[in-house]
């Protein structure tokens, strides 16, 4: 009897540091939201709250891959470029192939489904390049993914000739991005994001593969000696991260019915920022998808409060920067305090 009690006590104990940070950031979010409601007119309206949760959907999609890679101790800076590349390619692949005066109106004339599949394959190709150099040849991820970031955007620029492709598209092209859930104003893209976040959460908390992600980040040498195939796991993660960026690119280009070479400029940094806001450690081995999601909402609250206060959009970057800075400092401080 007594040993049973003892064992129970051993299992309980304190919550994990990840949960602590996530709760801490939820606290920060609640405070920021309260303050915003108090000073910004109409901030508390339900529609605004829904917007806060959903209008960053594309950054959150990227954030999933970026978070898992950060947990392994790697960066993925190529995701913004991959969005642009996938978007432009998906347009080009299914633009009408019959001759036109305008070179930007001529594509390959493939069926839409094939076009999407090919564009996603190209996105995964970028992930495979990342994986090859980083997982196999052990080149630092920051270098390689900065390189592929430019290559991906470069491909977009060549194909879109530095502008955008938006003519002679089949009607079906705009469907995915334009769909909303019947009876609600929520877009299909947002639903995809929500499903992926839930899936990522389950992956992180419940699966063996999710656990391996942390093992690699915590100590990749020990992970290898403990039987984790580090190379294969990293390769999968890089390809998945690029695939998620590719899906985002397809949805965005469908929404705008256009593929532009300057789409998603700087999104890789936003994805990094929300991960860091959510408590993911760049040293690896620490962080969570839920935290990343909270980080995204914090960023969204701050920027929309600033807009609501009629601050000029020119202030957005500065405000984002200051908030990120303070939030991350507060986080480190809280964690150090807890560790004592």
């Amino acid at each position: 009897m007594e040993t049973r009690l003892e064992r129970k006590k051993m299992i309980g104990g304190r919550m994990s540091n990840e949960s602590f940070i996530t709760l801490f950031m939820i606290g920060v979010l609640v405070v920021l939201f309260g303050v915003s409601c108090a000073i910004v007119p109409r901030f508390y309206l339900p529609q605004n709250m829904i917007n806060l949760l959903t209008n960053n959907w594309y950054i959150i999609m990227l954030g999933i891959g970026v978070t898992f890679l950060l947990i392994t101790g790697n960066f993925d800076m190529s995701v913004g470029g991959v969005i642009a590349m996938t978007g432009v390619l998906s347009v080009w692949f299914c633009q009408d192939a019959t001759a036109s005066q305008n070179a930007l109106a001529v594509g390959l004339g493939l069926p839409y489904g094939v076009a999407i599949a090919l564009a996603l394959l190209c996105a995964m190709g970028i992930g495979a390049i990342n994986a090859f150099f980083i997982a196999r040849l052990k080149v630092p991820s920051i270098i390689i993914t900065l390189g592929t970031m430019m290559i991906a955007r470069g491909v977009a620029q060549i194909v879109a000739q530095g502008a955008q492709r938006n003519t002679s598209l089949p009607d079906v092209f705009g469907v995915l991005g334009g769909l909303t859930i019947p009876g609600m104003s929520i877009k299909l893209s947002v639903l995809v994001m929500a499903i992926l976040v839930v899936a990522a959460f389950v992956f992180e908390k419940k699966t063996v593969a999710g656990r391996r992600t942390y093992l690699i980040g915590a100590n990749s040498v020990a992970a290898r000696l403990s039987g984790v195939n580090v190379r294969r796991h990293l390769t999968s993660l890089f390809i998945i991260s690029s695939l998620l960026a590719g899906i985002t690119g397809i949805l965005l280009s469908s929404e705008f019915k256009a593929g532009g070479s300057s789409r998603a400029m700087g999104y890789e940094f936003d994805a990094l920022v929300i991960s860091l806001l959510g408590g993911v450690s760049i040293a690896g081995g620490f962080g969570s998808v839920l935290g990343m999601f909270v980080g995204a909402v914090i960023l969204s609250v701050v920027t929309s409060a600033a807009t609501g206060l009629l601050l000029s959009p020119d202030w957005q970057f500065t405000i984002k920067g200051v908030v990120t800075f303070i939030a991350i400092l507060a986080q480190r401080f809280a964690l150090d305090k807890r560790k004592g």
């Binding site: 942390y214 093992l215 915590a218 100590n219 020990a222 000696l225 081995g285 620490f286």
Partner: peptide, 10 residues
């Protein structure tokens, strides 16, 4: 510490 243990994990 460097090859056997995941020190930051439980």
């Amino acid at each position: 510490r460097s090859q056997g243990l995941f020190t930051i994990l439980t």
